[in-house]
Structures are given as structure tokens and as C-alpha cells.
């Protein structure tokens, strides 16, 4: 039975978190942080490291696309048409004879950018909102969180559809619209975190020795809430990218001539019977990227020892 208990990762997690907290206080004084500790733990997780490596690779490739892409983005070769992967075109070509690898790289720029910018929007709104609600508490908290509940209940599709119709199908608007949907969970997590931290003994102790409110926020609340925020940010990026792809697939997101992985998949679906590679490679790229982000997020959660509250 005790083996059973010890073998569960949760049990290990809770013991290490207690010791980790004690360590982090000592280390805080010494100037080293729990971050270097977390990095050491992350280095031992091969899946998370592979994910990180893959992401760096994809990000660099997409960043350098204009210089490294083998063909032009709109470069057509109508004589060639759709061709399977070959030495000239590593991932094949589409019906216009355009190089698929080039198009995936250019699409990746948009997909990754949507992921990063929309997540930043969500992060900014969500953390501010949640921290204020959690720290102030009382009526302010009730009103703010009720508002979150209300927005939660709104089917986001209609907002994005309508915003696209009202303001034209604009890339920045898409960032904003997705960010405006995704901040809600972040706000809830930060609020819950701040609220529960406020009740913890070490915060009580800090209050009892007469630390000022600001010092408590700075020394105790922010560093302790940062772990979940980082972890959730890493896990928000894939869900944002999925949302963008979902909208682009329906024809409501990125519009041609711009491209994204979601749009490439939807083109691929149209001709998947004849040219399956047009579906498989963009799909594989998107799935692998999401895999990498999720593995990194899970690795960070273990490394930063964030108690799994969401899943």
C-alpha cells in the first residue's frame, strides 16, 4: 500500500513541493531562484526537451522563410500541377504546381504569429483581471467573475464571425478576437491562485510580521502565481492555434492570399482523394507543433511543480 502511495506522482509532487517551497525561500535570499531549479528538472524530461527543440526548429524555419524557402510563395508551375513528393519538391506540389513545403513555411508564420500574439492578449487581460478580482475580493470579485461567466456562456463563434463581417476579415482583428475569448480561463486560474495563496499560512505569517500589502503581492503572490501562469500560457498557445485553424477551416479566419496551416488543411481536404499529401503534410506539421507545445507545457508543469488543477 505504501508502495502504491509513493509511486503516484501526485504524492511525490506534494512532498517535493513542500521541500521546494522551503528551498525557494532560502534561495530567494541567496539570489538563486526556483527557476534554475525548474530548469534542472525540465532538463531531465526528454519529451519536453524534444518538444522545445522541435518548436525552436519550427520557429526558426518560419522566421527565416523568406531566405530559406526553396520556391516563391505564389510561384506556380501549371505544367507540373499536383505532384507527389520528389527531390525537387520535398513535400510535393498543389494543383497549381506550387511547392507545398514553401507554403507550409509561409502558413506557419501566420499560425505561429496568431498563437503568440493572441496568447499575449489573453495573458495580459486575464492576469490583470484575475489578480484584481482575487486580491480585492468581495463585491468587486463577484461582479468581475460574473462578467467572466457571462462571456464564457457566449458562443465565441458568433463574435468572431460578426467582428469579421463588421470590420472586414482582418488579421489583427482575429488576434484580438481569439485573445478576447481565451483570457477567461487565465483570469479564472489567476484569481483562484491569488485567492488560495491569500489564505496560505505563509501569507498569514507575512501579514502577522507586518509586511506591507505591496510586499506581500511582490514577494509571495506574484512568484507563486507565476508558475501556473507560465504553464497555462504554454498550453494556451496550442488551443489558440487550434482555434485559428478551426476558423480558417470554416472560411472565417485567415483569408487567401494569406495562408495558415488551417487553411492549407482545408484545401487539402478538398482534394484528399486524388492528392492525399496535400492534407497529410500540413496536418502533420500542425499536429506535431501542437504536440510539442503540449509536451513542453506538461514538462513545465512538472518542473515548476504546478498542482494539476485543470487536467
Amino acid at each position: 500500500m505504501s508502495e502504491m502511495l509513493n509511486s503516484t506522482s501526485e504524492a511525490q509532487g506534494s512532498t517535493s513541493s513542500q521541500s521546494g517551497r522551503v528551498d525557494s525561500i532560502n534561495e530567494y535570499e541567496k539570489g538563486t531562484s526556483l527557476w534554475s531549479d525548474a530548469w534542472l528538472r525540465l532538463k531531465k524530461n526528454p519529451l519536453a526537451l524534444t518538444g522545445l527543440g522541435f518548436l525552436v526548429f519550427i520557429a526558426l524555419a518560419c522566421l527565416c522563410t523568406p531566405w530559406i524557402a526553396p520556391y516563391g510563395y505564389e510561384e506556380q508551375n501549371l505544367l507540373l500541377g499536383a505532384s507527389p513528393p520528389s527531390p525537387q519538391h520535398w513535400l510535393g506540389t498543389d494543383t497549381f504546381g506550387r511547392d507545398l513545403l514553401t507554403r507550409i513555411l509561409y502558413g506557419g508564420r501566420v499560425s505561429l504569429m496568431v498563437g503568440l500574439i493572441a496568447t499575449s492578449v489573453a495573458l495580459l487581460i486575464g492576469v490583470t483581471w484575475g489578480a484584481i478580482a482575487g486580491f480585492v475580493g468581495g463585491k468587486v470579485d463577484a461582479v468581475m467573475m460574473r462578467l467572466v461567466d457571462i462571456i464564457y456562456a457566449l458562443p465565441f463563434m458568433i463574435f468572431i464571425v460578426l467582428l469579421m463581417v463588421v470590420f472586414g476579415r482582418n488579421l489583427w482583428l482575429l488576434f484580438f478576437a481569439i485573445g478576447a475569448v481565451e483570457w477567461l480561463t487565465m483570469a479564472r486560474i489567476v484569481r483562484g491562485q491569488v485567492q488560495s495563496l491569500k489564505e496560505q499560512e505563509f501569507v498569514e505569517a507575512a501579514i502577522s510580521i507586518g509586511l506591507s500589502k505591496w510586499a506581500i503581492i511582490r514577494r509571495h503572490l506574484i512568484p507563486n502565481a507565476l508558475g501556473p501562469v507560465i504553464v497555462y500560457t504554454t498550453l494556451t498557445i496550442p488551443s489558440v492555434m487550434l482555434l485559428e485553424a478551426f476558423l480558417s477551416f470554416l472560411g472565417l479566419g485567415i483569408q487567401p492570399p494569406q495562408s495558415s496551416w488551417g487553411l492549407l488543411i482545408s484545401y487539402g481536404v478538398e482534394s484528399m482523394e486524388e492528392y492525399p499529401w496535400l492534407l497529410i503534410y500540413p496536418g502533420l506539421t500542425l499536429t506535431l507543433t501542437l504536440f510539442a507545445l503540449n509536451f513542453l507545457g506538461d514538462g513545465l508543469r512538472d518542473a515548476l511543480d504546478v498542482r494539476a488543477s485543470k487536467d
Binding site: A245, F249, I265, T287, N294
Partner: peptide, 12 residues
Amino acid sequence: GICMPTFLLGPL
């Protein structure tokens, strides 16, 4: 299952 979008899984 989480990383494979529905609109990819369906066509596949």
C-alpha cells in the same frame, strides 16, 4: 487526441 484537430481527424 488533443493535438489532432477534429477537422483533420475527420477527413483522415
